[in-house]
Design a protein around this nucleic acid. Structure first.
Lengths: 214, 214
DNA sequence: GTCTATATACTGATAGAC
DNA sequence: GTCTATCAGTATATAGAC
């Protein structure tokens, strides 16, 4: 995955850090955190692990920094939409589109975010990992609340219908996240095609929430 | 998790195998396959790993047998519904209810099924695991096709509307599977409450597929 | 900043006592 | 059928050469 888009301060300065992050994200996506060794990441970089440990103090820390990068990308994508005026259901739909597009565009990073949340929920963390992750989990929870607040408002507006707010938000976000599991870019795929996939996912979730548009 | 319900031939005979399967399923659910050691499973059994290796030849085989048990439960739950006459959308709804209930009732086993599919999709399998898993993956793919065929028929009947069949089925199944990630039984929860949760999940998916009931 | 050792711990799996 | 003891392989992480 190309990481130059990730808001590096200067072009082609400090590339080593970003190269490592990107290679590690790819490895974690393909084999999962536990099954990926630092040697695996080094191999993908065509280097040895000395390079990695020079830039990152531990495997858990490397994982955490990918997590943070993924969440930074998500917040960034939502930022211009959050402050838009208008009805909540409209805002939710735009937020959902931006989020789903991120799942597709930054898939390796988003898989790491997913695995981080999972590790936390299952409590399958070492004390060291817990320290590094807990702040990120809160970061991620607040992110989920952005969507939660919008569908709560939309229901109050009479534009959505569902029984339990937490369950509805969980299922809807799960739907929006789902491309990280089944999507993979096809050879001749254009931006138009990607947007079409996003539209199918968001449409499914919107109908699931009983959204009354227009 | 209690495993007596799993159709053991005789009550309290051959308990050791089932005890091991159940303890391992719990461990795999909590920490994932890679992060779970055989010693972890033995510790949960208050035993040592000699016991486990007497009944199962390898860790991969243990994982595979939990996978198979989970899928057997799923097929069993669908069996009486599959042959029901009537409209496809009605049949799909009943299948979806039975499936979602299984996700809740046999959560540890269903998490293992999920992880097995994931490992296959990511190709993060050792040659040994691949041999044991490939048959099970086919087993699971045929299972997904049961739902796929019903929504294809329902669309032909004019009772559902969606663009791409594969994507629609993926998202719908993802929705039905989602309780394995966010559901956990509450202290005073009655069967009635559980059924209510199932109904919310299935309702979401049905609306997502643009299902026109009644 | 990157490499080559190497320390230390843990893993899956086996052999043999009981 | 379950245990203890142990092997061989691999993991994270560190130290020091270059």
């Amino acid at each position: 995955m190309v990481l130059v888009e990730l808001g590096a301060s200067e072009p082609s300065a400090d590339n080593s850090r970003l190269d490592i992050l990107s290679a590690a994200a790819d490895c974690f996506m393909e084999r999962g955190y536990g099954a990926t060794s630092i040697d695996d990441v080094a191999r993908r970089l065509r280097a040895t692990k000395g390079r990695i440990y020079h830039h990152f103090p531990s495997k858990a820390d490397l994982f955490a920094q990918i997590f943070r990068t993924g969440m930074d990308l998500n917040y960034e994508a939502l930022a211009p939409i959050r402050s838009m005026p208008g009805k909540a259901i409209e805002r939710w739909t735009r937020l959902a589109r931006a989020h789903t597009m991120q799942m597709i565009k930054a898939k390796p990073f988003q898989r790491v975010v997913w695995e981080g949340v999972e590790m936390h929920l299952r409590g399958s963390t070492t004390p060291e990992q817990r320290n590094v992750l807990s702040e990120l989990i809160e970061y991620r929870t607040r992110y989920g609340d952005i969507f939660r607040n919008e569908i709560a408002q939309a229901r109050a507006d009479g534009d959505m219908q569902f029984e339990n707010l937490s369950i509805a938000n969980q299922i809807a976000l799960m739907t929006l996240n789902s491309p990280i599991f089944w999507y993979s870019r096809r050879p001749g795929e254009a931006d138009r095609d990607t947007e079409n996939i996003v539209e199918q996912v968001v449409g499914f979730a919107l109908r699931g929430l009983n959204g009354k548009t227009g």
